[in-house]
């Protein structure tokens, strides 16, 4: 499947990009995070992140579909 990933804050810095399109066999955000964390050297344990698919929060075992937009959200610091 093809996924569009967006990166923010320190994850974008670490990946060296704000977005990418990836072809992957991952069928859940859990599997996809393991893949990109290893690829880009993300330091965050998954437990510290939230994940959104197509603009809505989902669980780590959400079933991914082709062309989904997937965003791994590091802890927020607005305000």
């Amino acid at each position: 499947m093809n996924f569009r990933l967006l990166y923010f804050a320190s994850l974008a810095d670490r990946a060296g990009r704000a977005e990418e399109t990836r072809e992957s066999a991952a069928d859940t955000p859990r599997a996809l995070y393991a893949e990109v964390a290893s690829l880009h050297g993300f330091a965050f344990d998954r437990e510290r992140l939230r994940v959104a698919v197509n603009g809505a929060f989902v669980g780590w075992d959400h079933a991914l579909a082709d062309r989904d937009e997937v965003v791994f959200l590091p802890p927020v610091s607005g305000g």
Binding site: F8, A9, S10, D13, R48, A52, L73, P74, P75, V76, S77, G78, G79
Partner: peptide
Amino acid sequence: KRRVPIWKNEHYLDGESGWLHP
């Protein structure tokens, strides 16, 4: 502050900077 996906990058007087996380 707890829920909305907004991140703050502080630029320090000494030239360093860093994203703030939880």
